[in-house]
Design a protein around this nucleic acid. Structure first.
Lengths: 194, 194
DNA sequence: GTCTATAAGGGGATAGAC
DNA sequence: GTCTATCCCCTTATAGAC
């Protein structure tokens, strides 16, 4: 609105709000808390984000943009082999586990906080999960294994486990190997059977 | 407090509160809502549970009792082989996924809602996760594979994935196989490498 | 005109009292 | 059971500072 509004204000608000939402939860962080930590007036925040829902949606949107960029880069560097692309996808996610500020997947976390909600943030979260799940399915299909559905289920389970694992960050080390093994087993269905 | 309190009142409160907490989230459900759905007076509820924290702790406690019983039974039926016991443990968890009212792990969900909390419910949740993780480690160690730590990490990742997967319930079908494969691969470390 | 500071509205939370 | 106390939530409105 402002003709010469202070640049970067919106980003600064999103920085603070995003960090709080992610580490403490959306429900746990009130608008007053954000205003206090940003150090701005209440009006300024509501000028940029008319409601808390808008602010949460912007928080998820920014998370998604960064996620998509990192994912695209990982897939680009992995080359053309669908199996290697699956490994790279999981390895990229596993890399996030090692960051000290990692606290799971913001989309899954939001749906845990608002399981019945159907506003923009919840829809964004469900859309993200559906699209990522679909990507896994496409990559699994491209490997040419006899049972691509089963392979996709396994990879998705590993990804879910990575995001849920607040306890063992060593999961980051085994996850890519598990993907390789799942692909190998899918290519040679006779082998397993303990 | 009543001399001859109606029997089952406490259980009825826990039934209602537990279902609401589990399906809608602890933060999303207020005491007034619970009182309304139970149909009792406010005094009666606060007589049994002096605070919401107590009620949440009781909700988790009952969940844990049932979990422990089901887990013990699954392990009993699995026999003595540590590998089979790991498979049975995961299969028992996978079975929960198929229930229509499944909405993840109540302990993990609580920690997502209260990541920084340190009251009784949060401690109960962390204790449950730590003990289950420890059980997996013991069973993995008992298999006698060269790298029990790595095996335990894999199994724990699968369990985490099962609880997080709100999307693909087909995960329930592949998870036990993944456990078998992980054990087989751990017993013969040369095989994998796609 | 841009932003801050403060107050207040309307609702619902937990909890206590009678 | 109802009624009240206290608090915090999101949001809007008002008033003042630069």
């Amino acid at each position: 609105m402002a003709r010469t509004a202070a640049p970067g204000t919106r980003e600064r608000i999103l920085d603070v709000a995003g960090a709080l939402f992610y580490t403490e939860g959306v429900r746990a962080v009130g608008m007053s808390r954000i205003i206090g930590e940003v150090g701005c007036g209440k009006n300024l925040l509501y000028a940029h984000f008319p409601s808390k829902t808008d602010l949460v949606a912007a928080y998820l949107g920014r998370f998604r943009e960064r996620r998509d960029r990192a994912e695209a880069q990982a897939l680009r560097e992995a080359g053309d082999d669908p199996g290697e692309r699956l490994v790279a996808l999981v390895a990229e996610i596993a890399g996030r586990l090692r960051r000290p500020d990692f606290r799971g997947c913001p989309f899954r976390n939001l749906l845990t906080e608002f399981p019945a909600g159907d506003e923009l943030p919840e829809r964004m979260a469900r859309e993200y999960l559906a699209q990522t799940c679909e990507l896994v399915g496409r990559l699994a299909g491209a490997t040419g294994v006899p049972d691509p559905e089963g392979l996709a289920d396994r990879i998705w389970l590993i990804i879910d486990g990575l995001y849920a694992s607040g306890f063992r960050e060593r999961a980051a080390e085994v996850a890519p190997d598990m993907v390789r093994e799942a692909i190998a087993a899918a290519r040679d269905p006779r082998a397993p059977a303990v």
